[in-house]
Design a protein around this nucleic acid. Sequence first.
DNA 1: TAGAGCTCTCAAAGCGCTTTGGCTGACTGC
DNA 2: GCAGTCAGCCAAAGCGCTTTGAGAGCTCTA
Lengths: 361, 361
Amino acid sequence: MRDKSADPAALQSALRNLEPAVNLKQLSHMLQLSQTTVSRALNGYPEVSEETRRRVTDAAKRHGYRPNPSARRLATGKAGMIGYVLPTGASVDIDPHFVEFLSGLGDYARSHELDLVLSPADADDEETTYRRVAANKQVDAVYISAPRPADRRISLVNQLGLPFLVHGRAEGLDFDYPFLDIDNEGAFHEAARLLVQLGHKRIALINGDDGQTFAIFRERGVRRALASAGLVLPPEKIRSVAMTEENGYRSARSLLEQPEPPTAIACSSLIMALGVVRAVRDLGLTIPGDVSLIAHDDVFPWLKPEHFSVPLSTTRSSIRAAGARIAERLAARISGLEEGARGEIWPVDLVVRGSIAGAAG
Amino acid sequence: MRDKSADPAALQSALRNLEPAVNLKQLSHMLQLSQTTVSRALNGYPEVSEETRRRVTDAAKRHGYRPNPSARRLATGKAGMIGYVLPTGASVDIDPHFVEFLSGLGDYARSHELDLVLSPADADDEETTYRRVAANKQVDAVYISAPRPADRRISLVNQLGLPFLVHGRAEGLDFDYPFLDIDNEGAFHEAARLLVQLGHKRIALINGDDGQTFAIFRERGVRRALASAGLVLPPEKIRSVAMTEENGYRSARSLLEQPEPPTAIACSSLIMALGVVRAVRDLGLTIPGDVSLIAHDDVFPWLKPEHFSVPLSTTRSSIRAAGARIAERLAARISGLEEGARGEIWPVDLVVRGSIAGAAG
DNA sequence: TAGAGCTCTCAAAGCGCTTTGGCTGACTGC
DNA sequence: GCAGTCAGCCAAAGCGCTTTGAGAGCTCTA
């Protein structure tokens, strides 16, 4: 393909394509300047006169010049993209929260021409993929979500020198790292405290997978609230399960069929709450008459707590907003505006609706 | 950065990094061969002797040689990635189905080191982004989802010469194109036919956004089934709305409060069906006693039709499987194994559960 | 035994950008 | 009037691959 003009397909597409795709060489030739100067002018280097710079930027705009990202990447090592290693596998389901997070990411990235590279990985061996991503320099930074305590991925990307941001927090790592998290402990502490104040003594927690720190923090919040009222959260009042409707149902059902069933349930997701409501109904019980229910709401546009048959009290934090913020911080890190290991923890709203009431007994 | 060894950070990371990242030059030097030969050997060109090829591949494996994708891309124009333009905007919500689709895509892509590039675009102006993606040659192919009739995106990528695959189908385009779709019309035809056979005469359809072809096909299917029983689907028995729980509720409620309410409802998504069930209950009606319900199930792991309070009859097609197949075909197109405008239409399962019964009247 | 025809290999030219290390000429200060 | 600055520009060397065009060595035919 030395000579493009000889390739009829390329010619055709060049004719049809409204953007003529000038390259730096052509542009500098038209301007009677060297590629160096044009490149510097465009990239804001100081050693170009203001007049030249203006001439260059004007011409660039006029001809729709866009630097070829592959070439730029090869030269600089910078990709202009952020990455995410997506754990997949036959028995691995991507969390529906991911889509909301993505909406947020897109909200920011859209206006900055920042693309996101999803690198699917075997969920049992994400390390290989992280290494590949780092070695290939395909992306300038990655974010890591759903961290576990002492998450190995975090140590790994840290070692690899790949800039990153964690959505959530790990625990027990011997170094600091940048993250964005919501105050899960605070949220569930508030929720449980409210239930306690309403006179509930037997409170249950239907939590997400307890391998993940968010679930650990939530449990801690509930425990702390109960403790300060002299109550405890016994193991038989806790469920840690994947956040599906079915698991919500099963968990609630098994809790409510105990000899001394809980009078209030805190639940880690709206989707599980659907199952809880179904279980309560199946057992001929009512909310909040027999059992109070409060759940965490990540703010899905397609499922809202106020539209449950009994409007659901929630701890609320928009995961979409988090996505946007993470994109913003990632962009800042890439361009060197953000450095160090800043952790950001967002407060969570407690929204009281009809699903909680004073304890019956 | 001419001299890497002078950069302490690079040195450090090279020491820590277990993969030494040899490049072609180094590798060919070790082998006492030219870069040309090594490159050809690795890429399966015929003009290399088998013995040399073996020597080369062995050495490559031993030293963990991985061609630098940026360099390869610059040289060949091939990126080894597939792209998706993600419509975003403050008032735009990404469909939760997307995550399931992604799981499927990942299932295939994972084992082929195929990455996915998401390019967020202003939902009101996706064209710019498509042009950018095509001009930058960031990806080798894209897929387009949720097509509308005569979808402009399809004409555009076709014109731009960007290889693509449509998930779904458009209508009224003056050229053929490759796609993968499910038989939406057939599915809803079967569903409606079953309802008719059960004696239902007033059947309603709660559909997705009728700007999209899937919704058009579904409506067509219902109409056809009714027509062959001498029935019609009047406008007041149709709702076309975004697929949220709330819209399911509103739609069902307004339908059931009509003077002559439907005795059966076909619904385009499980999420909307949640709202339908709530509406039915709110009105003091029962399923299937007062109203039969059948919905389309894209197979979410977190919400299953068999776990509705009354198990839901569905038309079922795994959107995850579609994702995997699309990745597979896209990969085939990239490597030239698939060509032309092959359309693939998957049949849909009709799964009967307790939510439908004979018409009361 | 010369020449044709292979097979295998190579040097070097791109791909389109960034960056290094000059170079030029005008302007300063003494 | 001269060395010393400095602003502004340039040529050329990369970045790490692929691909072209050639050539060396060998076998085979007439």
